[in-house]
Every structure is written in structure tokens, then in C-alpha cells.
Design a protein around this nucleic acid. Structure first.
Lengths: 151, 151
DNA sequence: TGTAAATAGTTGCGCCCGCAACTGTCAATC
DNA sequence: GATTGACAGTTGCGGGCGCAACTATTTACA
């Protein structure tokens, strides 16, 4: 007895939480990005920068990289692109000439005002498919994992 | 009264569920991929293919693309790479000469046996940080969103 | 049977990303 | 005040990805 070698455990990908999270995140992203890609010509990094600057006037590339956990080069390129399109302005920071204060142009604010309600509506529609307890549980789980991973 | 124009709703990215899902998925992926990248030289598509073939002997590139929701070119390249490394074999399907039946080589099975317990352990460790109810709620929410998005 | 549509898989191409290295500026220390 | 290290931001480079187009095979159907 007890002579059997430990059987190899099997890993079924569709039941593996890291995989499920990734697949779900991609699907939700695609579901959402249709809006800002096709109707506004933004990709995901640009969308994130636009929204962040729209919320926090005068923020910098670094602060966006910190709060969104995007690589700073990705942020840099998104900012450059938005500026080229006239949606964003860079102004040298008063106290620190390394940093650049960002703010939306008039056109940028217009896009923000058009886009944000649509995005929130999509989020609301998606989440409304969940029962009250399911939603609460999901958000609690998300929050806890964010804590654990220090996001 | 009622003369105020509707204020622009604000979207705070750290509270926006699609963003949170993406950020969390990336973090969990990175947390996990350290194992199969540094210790086994696999990237994510290769890892997924290895695991899937390890579970379902004789599956094809197409079935992997379907079950993992990866683009078929991504699957194709992962398979080619695994074959080059001698971890996987392609055999022409008996009934359909377009398709290729996949199975792990001896070296591939060895890697599977070494890798799977480590991956499951990482998943377990991560999820053990959640309370019982939190975990249950998270999984229920994930499952429901998968249903809604037809994953 | 012969033709057209569908399917499995591969490959060329362009794009985006992260890494590393770089410039310019600030802060600390002597 | 000069030097050293830290920090904000940009850019060249290599690699991976998805799209579209392609080959080869199978299926549907007239």
C-alpha cells in the first residue's frame, strides 16, 4: 500500500482562474473598444490617457503610468499621438522642468464628454446582467485581489 | 429649476470595471508567467498549448484556438515552436488530412508533469488570500460574465 | 462528376509593445 | 559650486501579434 506514484494532476485551462481572468478581460476590452476605436479612432492607451487627463487636470505622464500601471513608453506614445491629433496639450511644469503638465484641448474635452457616457453605459449594461449578489461578490473579489497584488 | 445642463459624468479609471479586469489579468499573468518563462522557457501561448495538448491528447490547432479563444496564427506559431523544441509532435489526422493531431513527446510530458503542479500551486496560493465568501462570489461573477459574453 | 464554398493550417506584412539606452533636469552631498 | 545619483520623458530596436491572403483538403450540391 502507498506504493502508487503520485498521479500527475491535470490542469484544465477553462477552469484555471488566471486563464479565465485573461480571457474575460480581453473579451470585455474588445466589447468596449469597439466604441472608442471605430467611433473615435482611439486605441486603448489613448483612451486611458484621455480619460485620466480628463479627470485629473495637470497630471503628468508619470502619474498616468503609475495610476494605470502602463509602461511609461506606452503612455508617452499615447500622449504624443493625442497631441498630434489636437486633443491634448503639454505645458512645461512650473516647478519641475522635467515634467509636462497635461490638459485636454477644447476638442479633447468635447471627445471626453461624448465618449465617457457611452463607456459608462456599456459598463452598466454589462454589469446589469449580473444579479445583485453576483455583482457584489465579483467586486469584492476584484478588490481583494487588487489588494493582494498591490494594484 | 431643471435649467442646469446635464453635467459631464466623470469616469475614474481605477473604478471602471473593464479597466480593473484588464489590469488584474495582466498582474496575475505576470505573477504566474515567471514560472513558465524563466524556468521552462515558455511564453503564454506555448504554455496554453502545452497544457491543452496535455489534457486532450489528439487535439488539433483549431480545437485549441476554439477552447482558448486565441487567434489561430498565435496557436500555429506556438505549436511550431514547441515542435522545434521537441516537446510536441504533429501527426496527420486519419480522416481529415487538413488537420494535424497533436500530442506531447516524452520530453513534453515531463515538462507538463513538472510545470502543472507549480502552476496549480500558484493559483491556489493566490486564491487562498481570499475569504471563502469572496472566492465564491468572485467565481460566480466570473462564470456569469463568461456566460454573458459567450466564452 | 464537377464546381463552389467551407475549413485546417501557414506565412508575409505592418503595428504595437517592452526593454534598454539616451537627454535633460532636479536633488543630495562634499 | 561641482559632482553624483535619481527622475521625467523620448527613441531605436527586436519580438510578438492580428489581419489578410494563400495552399491544401473536404464538403455540399447541381
Amino acid at each position: 500500500m502507498n506504493a502508487r506514484p503520485a498521479p500527475t494532476p491535470t490542469l484544465h485551462l477553462p477552469a484555471f482562474v488566471p486563464f479565465r481572468l485573461n480571457r474575460l478581460a480581453v473579451a470585455v476590452s474588445n466589447h468596449l473598444s469597439v466604441i472608442y476605436r471605430e467611433r473615435f479612432g482611439l486605441d486603448i492607451p489613448e483612451w486611458r490617457v484621455l480619460v485620466t487627463v480628463g479627470c485629473e487636470r495637470g497630471c503628468t505622464a508619470q502619474s498616468i503610468a503609475d495610476s494605470t500601471r502602463m509602461h511609461k513608453t506606452r503612455v508617452s506614445r499615447a500622449i504624443a499621438h493625442l497631441e498630434t491629433r489636437g486633443l491634448l496639450e503639454r505645458a512645461s511644469h512650473n516647478e519641475d522642468r522635467r515634467a509636462l503638465e497635461l490638459q485636454l484641448t477644447k476638442a479633447g474635452r468635447k471627445m471626453y464628454q461624448d465618449l465617457v457616457p457611452l463607456a459608462l453605459e456599456r459598463e452598466r449594461t454589462l454589469l446589469s446582467q449580473l444579479g445583485k449578489d453576483e455583482l457584489k461578490g465579483l467586486l469584492a473579489g476584484l478588490t481583494r485581489l487588487e489588494q493582494v497584488l498591490e494594484l
